[in-house]
Amino acid sequence: MSSNPTAADIMTERLCASMKREEHLQQRLTAADDWADLIQGLLRRLVRNIDQECYCAEDLEQQDDQFSSIIKSIRAELKAADGSKPSTCTWSEGGFSWHTGCGKEWQFTDGGLPAENGMHFCHSCGKKLVVESAQSA
């Protein structure tokens, strides 16, 4: 009996990988939408505060506190978005597919290294793609 996967096995594996990628991308899209909504709200608050300051200069101390609070929130969100995440995604070869540093899986129809297939950035996290060498694996 042959241990080679059948065409159906390969297609099933690819379908499962594709569905996992789609689910992960949807989660990332939802998170990005939530973050954009939050930033948009903070910017609206900032603009309202600036508009009020232009028209109501008599209450500057309260406005300064509000302005400082808004700026602190914006800085916190921007810092969280920058984070201390690595700037690369390390891929390692595993059988018929590549395993990404961000927890996903990718397959090339014709095999080969990611760079040989035009891949320079991770399809999932968007970071610069680095291939793990056989020596470090």
Rank of each mutant, 00 (worst) to 15 (best):
M1K: 10
S3V: 04
S3D: 13
N4Y: 03
N4K: 03
P5L: 06
T6N: 09
A7K: 06
D9R: 07
D9A: 07
T12L: 12
L15R: 05
C16E: 15
C16I: 15
C16Q: 15
E22K: 14
L25G: 08
Q26E: 14
A31P: 06
A31Q: 11
A32G: 06
A36F: 13
A36P: 00
I39D: 03
Q40R: 15
Q40T: 14
L43F: 08
L43R: 14
L43I: 07
L46D: 09
V47N: 15
R48T: 08
N49S: 14
N49W: 00
D51L: 08
Q52R: 15
Q52N: 15
C54Q: 14
Y55D: 15
D64P: 00
D65W: 02
D65L: 14
F67Q: 01
S68F: 02
I71F: 06
I71N: 13
K72V: 09
S73I: 03
I74S: 05
E77R: 10
K79P: 00
K79D: 11
K79S: 07
D82F: 05
D82A: 11
D82N: 12
G83Q: 02
G83S: 09
K85G: 03
P86D: 10
S87I: 04
T90C: 11
W91T: 03
G95Y: 04
G95R: 08
F96R: 10
W98N: 07
W98K: 02
G101C: 00
C102A: 03
E105N: 04
Q107N: 12
T109N: 06
P114S: 03
N117H: 00
N117G: 00
M119D: 02
M119H: 08
C122T: 05
H123Q: 09
C125L: 02
G126H: 00
K128M: 09
V130K: 09
V130M: 04
E132C: 09
E132A: 11
S133H: 09
S133N: 08
A134Y: 05
A134G: 00
A134W: 03
Q135A: 13
Q135D: 14
S136C: 06
A137I: 05
